[in-house]
Amino acid sequence: MTTTSSAIPAGRAGRSRRLLTENAAAVAVFAILGVLPLLFGGYVIYILPQYMLYGVLAMSLALMWGYAGILSFGQAAFFALGGYTMGLVMQAIGAPEAAYLGILVAATIGAALAALVGYFLFSAGVRDTYFVIVTLALSIMVEQIAVSQSQITGGWNGMFVDRMDLAFGPLGAVSLWDDWAIYYVVLPVVALVYGVLRWQIQGPFGKILAGIRENEDRMVALGFRTPLYKTVAFAVSGAMCGLAGALYATHASFVSPSLGGVLFSTEIVVWVAIAGRQSLLAALLGGIVVASLSNYLSSVAPEYWQLFLGLLFILAIVFFRGGVAGVFAQLGRPRGGE
């Protein structure tokens, strides 16, 4: 991704206006997500937290692809790793507090593996295109290990994970068996992840990543240790996937090898490409909306939906590099602005 890509309006005024609108849009989105359980019940409320966690996956990819300009086909690998970790930790330690430890360990393992792979490759200046394939291989490896080490992971049958309780030490615990209860646990976590990431992206870290995306040589010449920044970005991205995987596992009460597979990794890339890779909010919504549509339409016209997604993906690459969000930004831009 050496060519420049800009969905950014010219001028300070334009930028601050867009900043404002994205923040306002984010507040609106989370507010809507917050009141949904009051309006709906049943399946919608059961399934939405899973899609929000898909949204976290999408944001983790947007951080790498949209901001740092490095595409990863391995996000699902970290997601599955997080899910299995959560299951194993909760099995090993019976106490209700184990869930917290599971989430922590899942995020840490995601970050550690991503940091290891990332630093190993980035420090040698391995090409971005090679990185894509290495992360693809990572997905295949995790899926195959999950299938073959069935004494630990349950193989193709998958692994059952308990729904976690919200434990408060000696004060007792709140059961999250109710779907709306866990909804209100997942939503704040997703909002927090979005908020922290957005805050960091607006700051120096995000600017350095954008600098690396636009011209890495120049950033090196300016004295930035670019492999380090890329590694940190990938580690953060891996931690997000691990966290999302852990919460997904306890929400769905089930993990299977296909969560780490190539197909799921690919889906994440498609969500982000279609929604817009340079906006975290767009990626989050892309994860939620495209996954919901997939779920709905795959019951109506399963094969054609995938085909349609593939065609949309091509359109996004050839004509709309900013995805849907980019089209909106284009519409909002004043005439003659650039």
């Binding site: 595409l71 894509v132 890339v269 498609v270 490409a273 593939g310 993906f313 091509i314 690459i317 050839v318």
Partner: peptide, 11 residues
């Protein structure tokens, strides 16, 4: 080209 050939794979 990598992304486009990947889309070709999907389709």
């Amino acid at each position: 080209t990598l992304l486009l050939t990947w889309a070709f794979f999907l389709i």
